[in-house]
Structure formats: structure tokens, C-alpha cells
Amino acid sequence: MSEIDADAAASQKLRKSERVKRKGNRTSEDGDSAGLGKGRAAAFVAPAMLLIAIFLVFPALWTLYLGLTNYRLTGFAATHPRFVGIDNYVNALTDSRFLNSLGLTLLFVLGSAVIGQSVLGFAIAWMMTRVRKGVKSVVEFFVLLAWIVPSSVSTFLWLALLDRNNGTLNTLFGTGTTAWLLQFPMQSIIVFNTWVGTAFSMLLFSSALGAVPPTQLESSKIAGAGAWAQLRDVIFPHIRSHVLTNTILITLWTFNTFTPYLLTAGGPDHRSEILPVYIYRLALSEGSLGQGSAVSLIMILINLVIALVYLRILREKKS
């Protein structure tokens, strides 16, 4: 009985203090912990919002508008663009070149990001948990180097590596005059992008593996678990959220990367024309700004879907 009384008294006290707080600060129930009030809070956010509006929202809306016109880089349509409705979108979605590009992009993302960077990055990170510190530092240094070297430099190195005449690869393996970039354009840019991006996955997985409790690994070892069973039963359950984060980030980055253009320029014959390269060629090389804008918007939508799926999964995990 007395316990209930005490509870009631406590809750009454709480309500009273809440009333007092509300009187002192009207916005306390909105979670205004800083006590700024809406006006001042808005003033603080305004500069950032303005910058976002100018540099992000406006260009996006402009792209949306351009996508509805036959705007071109040069010629009559450059000065007198005509409103064409959703023609550009219909054209894009029925154009075999667009569909080809979309397919190549999916292949590119799957090959170089999901399989290449993730798997290779994890494999390196895992191997590095079993070697001496010195070896680990050296390996990490070289992997990181691929990531931090400017893409113009690294693509130049790869051009030298894959060159038909006197290329390093052909010399090394005695593969004659194989023109790697012409004969295997997709394979080349997939390997290239894996090489560039593995460092990120490796670093992320390194830190994730460092957080796996060593005693759990040891108890699975004592139970007799081999490497594969340890991966399945201890490591993967612990790094699941890292795998998710990593996959989403590198998917988005790979989806949007333009660097392969520096290697193959989308060729030969559109065989390595991933979406960013397609848009660039369409809008700026061929001058169809309106059509390019429409494809850009489609690409933004695909990005958005990926991001939303990611946020959804992450939120489900938290709750």
C-alpha cells in the first residue's frame, strides 16, 4: 500500500515539475532542449538551407525542367528550347543504348563493388588479423595507396599496364599484343575499380573484425570450429551491420563513378558505357542536354531507391 502511495506522490511531483517547466519555456514539449525557440532555431539553420537550395535543389529542379525540353548544347534548340513533355523519358526507357548502359552498370556494380571490393576487402582484412603487425602495415599502406592516388594518375598507370604494345601485363605474362581495354573493356574497368576501391572495404572490415570479442573466437576454436565455421558462427553475426553499411556505400559510389571513362571512354562500341559515362557522352559530347537531363533524373531516382532501401534496413535493425 505504502509503495503505491509513494509512487503516486512521485508521479504527482513529476507532473508538477513538468508544469513549471512548461510555463518557463513554452516549447519544452517539442523537445527543444537548447531552449532557442522556433524563430532563432530557424535562423541558425537558414544559411545551410540556403546553400543546399542554391547548389542542390535548384540544379535538381533545373535538371527536371531540362529533362522536359529538347534543349541542346548548340544549334537552334540551344536558343529556343521547346517543351516536349515526357518524350525524353519515353525515349530513354525504350532506347536500347540506355538499357544496354543500365545492364552494364549493374554488372559493373555487382562485379567491382559487391563481389570485388567487398569480398577482396574482407579477405585482406581477415588475413591481416593473422599476420604480424609489420606485415599488416605494409599491406595496408599499398592497398591504401591505390585509393588515395588521384584517379587521373592511377588511370594513367593502368593505361601503361594494359597497353597493347609493351604494356606491363603483356610483357609479364607473355600475352603478345592483347589489347585488354579493347578486347575486355568491362573486365578491365571492373578489375580497375576493384583495385581502386578495395581499401575502403578493407579498412571498414578491419575495424569491424577488431571489435569481434576474441574470447568468442577462442571458444569456437576450442569447440573445434575450423576457419569456415568461425566465420559463419562468430564473425559474420558480429559484422553483419558493417557488411550492410559497406555494401550500400560502395554500391552508391560505384554506381556513380565516372573514372572508367578515363580508361575506355565507354567504348569500344558502347561496350563499357556505364550510366555516368552514357550521360556525359549524351549530354556533353553529343549535345543532347534535354535527353541527358532526363537520364540523369532516372539515375538520381535509382540512387534514391538504393538509399531508401538502406535506411529502411538500418531502421529495422535498430528497432
Binding site: E218, I222, G224
Partner: peptide, 12 residues
């Protein structure tokens, strides 16, 4: 290997 020693361990 630890798994072949027929031991069991309880950790702190």
C-alpha cells in the same frame, strides 16, 4: 589444435 585436445574452457 585447441579443438583436438578434448578440453572445454569457460571464460571470464
Amino acid at each position: 589444435e585447441p579443438g583436438k585436445r578434448k578440453i572445454a574452457m569457460v571464460f571470464q
